[in-house]
């Protein structure tokens, strides 16, 4: 046992990454995910707000959400992004700031940062261990080619990512945000989180659909 404990403490970056990849479904399986659709609810004061997220690997992302009886959406593709939130008084889709678009584009990769990270030009560093609300985690720093930084906290027992921390700029203001993941379940051989929460609220996923057809038109930025 003592030897095993020593080995756990001395895990390398690749060992931790590989265990996480395995815990999520394995490299081969994960690499086959081309599209992912998540149907979710956000609890806002007792009201469930339906939310649908579409991600197409390296192509784009779309979010649709109904708030206060109004349909809103946001879309980002490899070139641009726009949001349309009539609930905030917008009359037409508005272009998103370039820094936000760039920040979101780095998340189109459904395989995640850990698979093929060297080839993707990412820089990963195992920064030891850190406690996340009482749970010991491996802490991994990821630096993207555009210098963006994200920290991953991987639960030492399950090897699932239970927290991501990211600093990014919006309109010149630095944002420092955590988001937590939980309720991991198997979906067609992949382990995915069915609950997500950030500093502003919580989201529950009711269904994931993997590899359904998502046409390019879904990710086009509409001008009206």
């Amino acid at each position: 046992m003592a030897v095993a404990a020593f080995q756990i403490n001395a895990q390398t970056l690749d060992e931790v990454l590989n265990k996480n990849i395995e815990a999520r479904g394995g490299k081969e399986a994960i690499s086959k995910i081309k599209t992912l659709v998540a149907e979710c609810d956000v609890d806002a004061g007792g009201q469930k707000l339906p939310l649908k997220l579409y991600t197409a690997n390296n192509r784009g992302f779309r979010m649709e959400m109904t708030i206060m009886g109004m349909d809103n959406h946001m879309v980002v593709n490899t070139k641009e992004g726009a949001s349309y939130f009539p609930v905030q008084g917008q009359k037409a889709p508005e272009a998103m700031p370039a820094d936000m678009v760039a920040s979101m584009q780095s998340s189109f990769d459904l395989a995640g940062e850990f698979i093929g990270w060297r080839e993707k030009g990412l820089n990963l560093e195992l920064q030891g261990e850190e406690e996340v609300e009482g749970t010991m985690c491996f802490k991994i720093l990821c630096v993207y080619p555009n210098k963006k930084e994200k920290r991953f906290f991987i639960d030492k027992e399950s090897y699932q990512i239970i927290r991501e921390n990211e600093k990014f700029e919006v309109n010149g203001k630095e944002m420092d945000a955590n988001q937590d993941f939980g309720n991991f379940k198997n979906v067609d051989g992949y382990t995915l989180p069915f609950s997500m929460s950030g500093q502003m609220g919580a989201m529950k996923v009711s269904k994931y659909t993997i590899n359904s057809e998502l046409k390019d038109a879904l990710f086009e930025v509409s001008k009206k």
């Binding site: 992912l36 998540a38 956000v42 609890d43 806002a44 004061g45 007792g46 707000l49 939310l51 997220l53 991600t55 992302f61 979010m63 959400m65 708030i67 946001m74 980002v76 939130f85 905030q88 936000m100 920040s103 979101m104 780095s106 998340s107 189109f108 406690e131 609300e133 009482g134 994200k150 991501e164 990211e166 990014f168 944002m175 945000a177 988001q179 993941f181 995915l192 989180p193 997500m196 929460s197 950030g198 500093q199 502003m200 609220g201 919580a202 989201m203």
Partner: peptide, 29 residues
């Protein structure tokens, strides 16, 4: 999961019901 986009979404609105938490009797308990 697209984490950046999720963050952006959550910036828009706010849930007043925040679950909080903490163990083996220490601060995180």
């Amino acid at each position: 999961m697209n984490s950046n986009l999720f963050l952006f979404i959550l910036l828009i609105f706010f849930s007043p019901f925040q679950s909080k938490a903490q163990d083996g009797i220490n601060s995180s308990t």
